[in-house]
């Protein structure tokens, strides 16, 4: 995923070409160059999907529920992406049609992804409550068990 840009030096006699770093290297580096706007929009899209899953996982583990959880998701998701493109990448949002265009890029998909995860963890917690034991939802991610100890319960009434 290496993009190449070519350009003439001022005297116009020699062609200078240099390779831009890969998209993901630029995505994690501050003040990167984005000659192709579609690439930057793709980065925003995938960041948002990852963010949707991460927030969903965190909300599910807390567990944060109800309208507050949905509202907080919207605020955190939009806020973090806004901070990313204004304070980290310092892109001119007007070049992309305004902040709204960047803020809504991939939002609905991210929201659906976000809703899936708490549902699963909520289902999981409810099941664990019934069994009286807690099995970490993200067992395969090797997150230490003490992280989940707060949710261990012996209440079998639910």
């Amino acid at each position: 995923m290496t993009s190449r840009i070519k350009g003439f030096e001022k005297n116009g006699s020699t062609v200078k070409s240099h390779a831009l770093e890969s998209i993901w290297t630029r995505a994690f580096a501050s003040n990167s160059e984005w000659p192709d706007k579609e690439e930057f929009l793709d980065v925003i899209y995938w960041f948002r999907q990852a963010l949707g899953i991460i927030i969903g996982l965190v909300w599910g583990l807390i567990p944060l529920k109800g309208f507050v959880a949905l509202l907080l998701f919207v605020l955190v998701n939009a806020g973090l992406i806004y901070l990313y493109f204004t304070n980290f990448q310092h892109v001119d949002e007007e070049e992309y049609g305004g902040a709204w265009e960047l803020t809504k890029e991939g939002f609905m998909t991210s929201f659906a992804g976000f809703l899936d995860i708490p549902e699963m963890s909520s289902t999981h917690l409810s099941l664990c409550n019934r069994l009286g034991t807690f099995q970490p939802l993200v067992y395969s991610m090797n997150i230490p068990n003490y992280f989940f100890s707060a949710y261990s319960t012996t209440d079998t009434t639910l």
Partner: peptide, 8 residues
């Protein structure tokens, strides 16, 4: 019931 929603 296939899942439990974290909200109503």
């Amino acid at each position: 019931v296939v899942a439990r929603l974290p909200f109503v």
